[in-house]
Amino acid sequence: MGRMDEIREQLITLVKNDYEDEKIDKYSRVFVRLKPQHIRSVTRLLVENLDGRLVAISANDEGIYGFDLVYHFDFSHQEKGLHLALKVRLPRKKPVIDSITEIAWSANWAERELMDLLGISFKDHPDPRKLFLPYAWPSEEVG
């Protein structure tokens, strides 16, 4: 049994029906879709129990469908090339999601960057200041 099967099993026991496999390519990159409310518990599982590294968070602007947040977790130090991309869809009006900075500290700047550039708000972020934009930059409503 590969490492990915173990991870998938644990993920499914945690989130039950809200799990959806999207794609596994031949370079062992795994793309998975989740519901936004699970992001905290899933990150806790992946980072604290399974020793994954949060590499980056990126966002795709999908127009009227909203924003696709992609959380990149790296397990390649456990199995060659294993990379898990968790996708979460947020609505275009009021895109809000729980911050995972308290669990994975490397998410701090990634979340601040997304707040700056796409206006996604991360609930309970410990330091929600501007990162790339000037501090005095006016905040805008997305919609």
Partner: peptide
């Protein structure tokens, strides 16, 4: 489709994530 590529740059791990929509320019 989409792809994740990683390289060990002199400063460490460098990650690229590309999303394609089938045209000749990347979507993201």
């Amino acid at each position: 489709g989409e792809a994740v590529g990683r390289v060990e740059a002199p400063r460490g791990e460098l990650m690229y994530y590309l999303v394609s929509n089938g045209t000749n320019t990347p979507e993201r």
